[in-house]
Design a protein around this nucleic acid. Structure first.
Lengths: 153, 153
DNA sequence: ATGTTTCGTCTACAATTGTCAACGTAAATG
DNA sequence: CATTTACGTTGACAATTGTAGACGAAACAT
């Protein structure tokens, strides 16, 4: 896989990737048609996006009877995991829990998802620490929690 | 608040915001010193970042005896929530659950966090649907799950 | 074989982002 | 008062992103 490159997927490029992840390997024509039903982009724009994704190594092409077939080189789930983790990596350690609560509240989940989440959490419960320090300041500087309104509300 | 603007916080700007969120309202000197202990940025760079954040309305300044004091106009938790939700908004609906599992596994959480998450999930369990459709293709196009390897592995 | 469609590549251009240096002014110091 | 220091503002420049037109070669149609 190409983890570094995954972080460089831009919003527009995600749109393109999602189509190919879902549709499977496809010709540019098919992709352009599909994307144009969601986005008001010209053919040209989509071609550029495809080209950039190939250059980044996130898509690869195979010439099949004259036309290129575009396929992804990363799994969608892998990309989602990497991207979301990366986002979390630059957030205050102290508040990630709250953020997850918020995410879960606002995300539509199946019973199955909920079950899995419950299982993971129950396992985590045992080893969970009582507190987690804020990591927003340089190491040597202490996060005096008076200013740091990191606590719940 | 200024939700639109929150989405425009760039990675470098997050770094700056985190310091101010944690430290509370501060003079530029103090901010520059703190940030330079984490990042190898020149004073100039940090000033630019501060200026841009003020322009975006994410920071505001108050002149106090000659110097400006920078304070945030958005809460850190609000920013974190908005940003993470925004990320989730452009991911495949079908796979968000898996992604949350992954996030939770890799995020350090306190017992308290775990408790809250468990509570929220238990509540969600009742109303959770059995399946959620993939929303990567235009509405009229069906996600034929043969290509769409959206299922668990 | 010749005009037309198709498709990939190249070029372009404005806006944003990461990084800075330089400038002007007000404050502090000698 | 003359000098140095501190700080906010401007301008700058390369790289990335969003968006798209133009070009060239191959494939198809007549």
């Amino acid at each position: 896989m190409n983890p570094e490159k995954v972080s460089e997927i831009t919003p527009s490029e995600w749109e393109v990737m999602r189509i190919i992840w879902t549709k499977g390997p496809s010709h540019s024509r098919e992709l352009i048609d599909l994307i144009q039903r969601k986005r008001d982009w010209t053919e040209s724009t989509i071609k550029t996006l495809l080209g950039r994704l190939v250059k980044k190594g996130l898509l690869e092409t195979n010439k099949v009877e004259r036309k290129f077939v575009y396929s992804t080189t990363v799994g969608e789930l892998d990309a989602m995991n990497l991207t979301s983790q990366q986002l979390f990596d630059h957030l205050c350690a102290m508040k990630k829990g709250q953020t997850l609560v918020n995410l879960i509240v606002h995300t539509n989940l199946t019973k199955n998802d909920v079950q899995k989440l419950l299982t993971v959490l129950q396992k985590k419960e045992q080893t969970a620490p009582d507190t987690i320090a804020c990591d927003c300041l340089p190491n040597d500087e202490d996060c005096t929690t008076d200013n740091c309104e990191c606590e719940e509300k």
